[in-house]
């Protein structure tokens, strides 16, 4: 048991270190790179260069340095993902928890509205909105991703809250006439944390590839701004031949998601104690 504890501690430290490194890398990108992320060095001679001393992670189809794009891309990707997750998590938790505590009619209304929005395939909704609105700027794109992703959280939170409210502890609190706002913030939300931690990492893990998926469908972050998503989309036609354009962003996305998950688990354990 002690051993498991120790390895967990190391895991958490590793995760924190990774996230910190990504953060520092993104902020200090101008000093850590030798090329501007949008600079095309020589689109004829230097496109699709595999990793070398001159270009640590190779170059993409426009002869742009993948290492610079990876570091600068962290800004866009992390920014969009964090903003989108914040929007979706806040809204989803609020709707789900309020529905659980609210009178029956409001509960039904909120949950059916959630069902209704869920019944529209997300990609279709995004397509429809983007078709109408054209190329989106950074913040609207993040908010759009967030506001089309909260329904799942709301449903899971509503279900979990229903389960929690049925426990003797919370049933008692309710019977004692604890006001619902207090019930929500003091009793319900803390108990929901394990669910939310999983939901948040899942939402984060979904937001990053979704941004890439939008790039694949020809939408997404405005060129020539780098993002992990449009880095991946660039290798679409020959994914095996240009592995370095796929492997490095995927490693970054996966590493970030895993680290965020490890931290969330650690926090959850702290709260439990």
């Amino acid at each position: 048991m002690k051993e498991a504890h120790a390895s967990r501690e190391t895991g958490v430290r590793l995760a924190a270190a990774f996230l910190a490194l990504v953060g520092v890398g993104a902020l200090a990108a101008p000093w850590l790179t030798t090329h501007a992320p949008t600079a095309q060095l020589d689109p004829v001679a230097l496109a699709w260069q595999p990793p070398s001393a001159a270009h640590w992670l190779g170059t993409d189809s426009y002869s742009r340095d993948v290492w610079s794009r990876l570091l600068f891309g962290a800004r866009a990707t992390m920014g969009i993902a964090v903003l989108a997750v914040t929007v979706s998590l806040t809204f989803g938790t609020l709707v789900g928890a309020v529905a659980a505590l609210a009178p029956r009619w409001l509960d039904a209304l909120l949950m059916r509205a959630t069902d209704a929005l869920l019944a529209i395939p997300r990609l279709l909704l995004l397509l429809l909105v983007v078709a109408g609105a054209g190329t989106l700027e950074f913040a609207p794109l993040a908010i759009l991703l967030g506001s089309t992703g909260w329904m799942m959280t709301a449903r899971v939170v509503r279900q979990d809250s229903g389960r929690l409210l049925a426990t003797p502890h919370l049933e008692g609190a309710r019977a004692l006439g604890v006001p619902w706002a207090r019930l929500l913030t003091r009793h319900l939300l803390p108990s929901l944390l394990p669910t939310l931690a999983v939901a948040a990492t899942a939402a984060f893990a979904a937001a990053v590839p979704l941004e890439s998926g939008l790039s694949y469908l020809g939408l997404g972050v405005r060129t020539p701004l780098p993002s992990w998503g449009n880095l991946l989309a660039d290798a679409e036609s020959q994914p095996l031949a240009h592995w370095w354009v796929i492997v490095f962003p995927t490693v970054m996305i996966a590493g970030t998601v895993l680290a965020a998950n490890a931290l969330a688990n650690a926090m959850e354990r702290q709260w439990r104690r």
């Binding site: 949008t38 095309q40 189809s61 397509l127 078709a131 109408g132 190329t135 020809g218 405005r222 060129t223």
Partner: peptide, 27 residues
């Protein structure tokens, strides 16, 4: 789409900022 990214960089070199509005077919 690829041509527009190349032209954008070429125009930037003479000091012109090309904003690319990438739109779906009908839009």
């Amino acid at each position: 789409v690829r041509a527009s990214v190349l032209v954008q960089e070429q125009l930037r070199r003479v000091g012109v900022d090309l904003v690319i509005e990438k739109l779906e077919g009908q839009a």
